[in-house]
Amino acid sequence: MATNRKKLVLDHLNELNKAVTAKDIAAALSLDRTNISRYLNELYKENQIKKLPGRPVLYQATLSDEDKEEEDHNKKAFSRLIGYDASLKEMVQQAESAILYPPNGLHTIIFGQTGTGKSLFAECMYQYAVESKALSADAPFITYNCADYAQNPQLLFGHIFGVK
């Protein structure tokens, strides 16, 4: 019985083709979340699915070799950053998790010294969101340099939230 349910969970992940939580799967399959978590962890240990970092933990079906090549070819957003797969790897993973966080991603704010590439990192996050289909291809990319509004923060709030 457990093997059938584990296969059911795997099949559901393959159908979705996106990262989801154990709670989402439990709700979709009308099963206990605790058991779903156990099946997901077993599938992860068997290298049948991916476990994405963050809270809550997201699970995603492992791609076939053909799908991996296509994803590597398409997902080049963060490759523009020097160190995206080394010194910046943790920050890139956090950004990816924030973008894919259910249901609509998380708001982010990027801090750092002048000239460290905050704007470039934000552009890479936007490109990743478009590539991941978290945003539509025609979604606008709008930046605000908060330093320009240091003397008048109300002006920044007006730009972001609007005025009445």
Rank of each mutant, 00 (worst) to 15 (best):
S79I: 05
I142P: 05
T62V: 10
E46C: 07
P53D: 11
P102T: 01
E69Q: 12
N145C: 03
E131L: 03
F111P: 02
A98T: 04
T3W: 14
I49H: 03
N47P: 06
A2M: 15
E131Y: 00
K45H: 14
V92E: 03
E90H: 09
N47F: 07
A150P: 02
E42P: 02
K118I: 07
Q94E: 13
L135W: 06
I142L: 08
R33K: 15
K89S: 10
Q151K: 11
F141R: 05
L29V: 07
S79Q: 09
P153T: 04
N104T: 15
L120V: 10
L31K: 06
D65W: 08
K45L: 15
C146H: 04
A129L: 06
L29D: 05
P140M: 07
L63T: 00
S136K: 13
D85Q: 13
E66M: 06
S132G: 08
M91Q: 14
P102M: 02
H159E: 11
S119D: 11
A129P: 00
K68I: 10
K6T: 10
C124W: 01
L100P: 00
L135V: 02
G112L: 01
Y128M: 06
Q127M: 11
S132K: 10
I142S: 06
D32M: 04
D138C: 02
Y44H: 13
L156Y: 05
N152T: 10
T21K: 00
D11F: 07
R38G: 06
L40T: 04
